Computed example of a mutant assay.
Amino acid sequence: MNQNKNNTEVIYLSDPSECLRHPFHHKQIVFTGALSTMTRSEAAKKVRACGGIVQGAVTKETDFVILGKQRRSISTKQLKAEQFIHLGLDIQMITEDDFIWLISI
């Protein structure tokens, strides 16, 4: 760390690849179930603002499945994600509350 002429600390990263990235950056996101806090369109905009990609269906390339609070039962998207997880794919299913927290960071 160095101090500039205003006597505030300045942190220099030695490698630009050390920059922090959002967990959704370059990740493929699928929503299932209705969200209680926003529309699907608003949620998609927030995902894109974090550098994520919104998908309409669960595929082998899916990284996150967001489980909306207003689900009646287990959706086909959730079932498909669970099947892929059992096959060893790294798909994370997160609740709407966790999604809200993640897009706020």
Rank of each mutant, 00 (worst) to 15 (best):
Q3V: 11
V54R: 02
I11H: 12
T76F: 09
K45M: 11
M38V: 02
L13W: 12
D90L: 13
Q3A: 07
I100N: 08
H26M: 08
T76P: 10
L89E: 13
S36T: 06
R21G: 02
N4I: 02
E96S: 05
V30L: 08
H25I: 03
K5I: 14
K77E: 08
R71M: 15
G88H: 07
L67N: 05
H26G: 05
K46W: 07
D90H: 14
I91P: 08
L13S: 06
K5M: 13
A44S: 11
E96H: 01
K46S: 02
E61I: 10
K77H: 14
C50H: 09
I94E: 05
H25Q: 12
R72Y: 06
E61Q: 15
M93A: 11
T37K: 09
T59M: 12
S17E: 14
P16V: 05
P16Q: 00
R48D: 10
I66C: 01
L102G: 00
Y12N: 06
L67A: 08
D97E: 11
K5P: 08
V47Q: 06
G52T: 07
A81H: 05
A49S: 13
T37A: 07
D15F: 03
I66V: 15
Q70A: 10
S104R: 06
R21A: 08
E42D: 07
I94M: 01
P23T: 03
P16M: 06
K80F: 11
T62L: 08
T32E: 00
A34H: 09
K5V: 12
P23Y: 05
L79H: 14
S36F: 02
K69P: 01
R71P: 00
R21C: 13
L87C: 14
